[in-house]
Design a protein around this nucleic acid. Structure first.
Lengths: 193, 193
DNA sequence: CGTCTATTTGAATGTACTCAAAAGCGGTGG
DNA sequence: CCACCGCTTTTGAGTACATTCAAATAGACG
């Protein structure tokens, strides 16, 4: 069950057998049913979460119209944590909710700090995955301005086919920053016949 | 000259006197004149850069119309590096250019790695500032969808008054993802008389 | 099969863009 | 010292991309 996480870590830092055991012991399994919340806005994000299997959405609730604005999706082998809230142990502005049954690995804040103390080279791992994620966020900001809705949609389909498969269309629309109706029109327009 | 960087580091990790000396020796000063490039798209970002004094813009060149899309501004005490390009030592899609005379501290990729080896607790520092930056990027993505151009502009003025002061209006417009003309109309509309 | 939710379609509207031109502003040289 | 040049900002007119609201249709699930 913890193999996917170990595998992910080993891409960037080498743990010896003993470290691997220590590492594993810090993480606990959790299952979310469809619709369950991992985090609600206003709460503090107490755990860092790694998705083994399933699908989650992280979103902001627009206070003017109550609509969800998708920040990101998380499926197998991705992280699903409000990093700022987790790191500062301060209230989050986001919600994280299961879109289907989801299996997670979790570590609480104090354990996370303790784990880094015991295995300092993990600092490196977390720094690197942050750097990667950060690069993709920057790209997303720029692309949102450079490309129109249609281009962004097809770009999304290309880059995240597995996510596009699992998610309802209206959530993909929200992720892309467009209305569900407009995404529907984009699809109709591009139908083969 | 290196005090601002030391000060920034000390917010998150404590360096003893010896470490501080080692740390300082890794960084070299550099001055850019107005218009000088720190990085051009297609090049690899060879250095991590900390701004002592000045102003830089990081931007993507829209291949369809040649226009600059501002990714971020960097003024005193900020970082100005394409992190993804620097970390992977791979070609960058961005440009970084001085808007005015700018003093930097720089460290080359190999030295950066060596520095982390010699002072491992710096891993922690870089992880934390990445987390902070990441939080602000996420907020920017969500806010771009939730708020209209006018709200985003006034939000920008509130949060980055020093940046707003230094930057020409058309670059702020680009940062906000709107046209220079439209930002001008927003300002006119909100003039007191 | 019926109900609930998601998607599609239509019509009217709005926010922001483009192109073009004028006005403003700052620096430089005659 | 002021006139001119280049760049930024403003203004105008026409347009486009995307939204909203409403209603119809299609899909999923018990």
């Amino acid at each position: 069950m913890k193999e996917p996480l170990i595998k992910s870590v080993s891409k960037y830092v080498k743990l010896d057998t003993e470290e691997e055991i220590i590492f594993k012991n810090f993480w606990t399994e959790k299952t979310l049913e469809k619709g369950d919340y991992l985090l609600r806005n206003g709460e503090t994000c107490r755990t860092d979460n790694f998705v083994i299997r399933g699908a989650l959405k992280a979103f902001y609730i627009n206070s003017e119209n109550g609509k969800e604005e998708i920040l990101y999706f998380a499926i197998d082998q991705w992280w699903a944590t409000d990093i700022e809230s987790f790191q500062k142990q301060s209230p989050s502005m986001y919600n994280i909710q299961a879109i289907e049954k989801t299996e997670l690995l979790q570590i609480r804040y104090d354990s996370f700090q303790e784990m880094l103390k015991q295995i300092p080279k993990l600092e490196r791992f977390f720094r690197i995955i942050l750097e990667n994620y950060l690069g993709s966020l920057q790209k997303r900001i720029v692309f949102n301005n450079v490309f129109d809705a249609e281009q962004r949609y097809f770009d999304f389909l290309e880059n995240y086919p597995e996510v596009a498969d699992k998610m309802p269309q209206y959530l993909i629309a929200s992720y892309l920053g467009i209305s569900a109706e407009f995404l529907s029109r984009i699809r109709t327009k591009n139908k083969p016949y």
